[in-house]
Design a protein around this nucleic acid. Structure first.
Length: 271
DNA sequence: GCGCCCGTCCGTCATCGTTG
DNA sequence: CAACGATGACGGACGGGCGC
């Protein structure tokens, strides 16, 4: 288990939380999906000096019970909207999210590092443009696969391809033998906006350790983004539910009013 | 000004469901 | 079945309001 809860400040460059703009208008009325009275988890050290949670068997069961999965917000909402509430908009596989990802990736890496430890800039043409518009995708290809650039490349050249926010594609080439494969990462030791790429073919324990550290950082980075997205979705979901409540209240009022009128009508007829 | 409380945001971990 | 994405839970940071 690599779960450590004592390393937050070191391994997350953005976790300082300094002057994060607070979302002013989001008053989330609590909609409790599951009981959340989870007892404090006991904590102890693992072999490596990391603090880890230790659940008792009962604790695990209880936790599992509590954590029993609900469908995703999108699913719930889409089911709701398709089944009975035409007024409620579906949450789509949204463009908004893509936009958000683009903006997140704006802060990501515009450099790769060669096996020689040399950092090369991905932003071939215009670094400013890259950093303002952001990377959308980064893909690695071997020479010969990229039809456009392959012609101009010496055989065996590794091509690093990325797509900018405006859809235009940029390529960076690395001489054959210089690099075999890259893993993208944003290590906390590097300034924001720098990506590391390191070769595979690791043999020594130290390299293994570095490799696993890299993997961990990558995983954390992805999860960070995923958590952001998830929260965004959750907010949308809650907003939609609130809207739905408002609509239903309105309908309820109207129905009560109608019932009242019909009753009056009925009474007058009988008189 | 200071301490306390509360609400919000964020990163991380654990876990589940999905997908290739 | 491993890898990955989604998400609940947790804890820390931060800001605002309030009483002293």
């Amino acid at each position: 288990m690599d779960g450590s809860i004592d390393d937050k400040s070191e391994d997350s460059p953005s976790s300082s939380g300094s002057s994060q703009p607070q979302n002013l208008s989001t008053v989330v009325h609590t909609i409790t999906a599951v009981p959340t009275a989870i007892p404090n988890q006991p904590v102890e050290e693992d072999g490596e000096g990391h603090l880890v949670r230790t659940d008792t068997d009962i604790g695990i069961e209880k936790r599992r019970e509590i954590l029993s999965r609900r469908p995703s917000y999108r699913k719930i909402l889409n089911e709701l909207s398709s089944a009975e509430a035409p007024g409620i908009a579906k949450i789509e596989e949204d463009k908004e999210e893509e936009a958000a990802i683009t903006s997140i990736q704006t802060t990501i890496p515009s450099y790769v590092q060669t096996s020689a430890g040399q950092t090369i800039q991905i932003a071939a043409a215009n670094q400013n443009e890259l950093t303002t518009q952001g990377l959308q995708t980064i893909t690695m290809t071997n020479a010969g696969q990229g039809a456009v650039t392959a012609a101009a490349m010496p055989a065996g050249t590794t091509i690093v391809q990325y797509t900018q926010g405006d859809g235009s594609q940029q390529f960076v080439t690395v001489p054959a033998g210089e690099v075999q494969a890259y893993q993208i990462r944003a290590p906390s030791s590097l300034p924001a906006g720098v990506v590391m790429a390191t070769p595979t073919g690791i043999t020594s324990p130290q390299q293994l350790a570095e490799e696993s550290a890299r993997k961990r950082e990558l995983r954390l980075m992805k999860n960070r983004v995923a958590a952001r997205e998830c929260r965004k979705k959750k907010k949308e979901y809650v907003k939609c539910l609130e809207n739905r409540v408002a609509v239903l209240e309105q309908q309820n009022k109207a129905l009560i009013e109608e019932l009242k009128q019909l009753k009056d009508l009925y009474c007058h007829k009988n008189e």
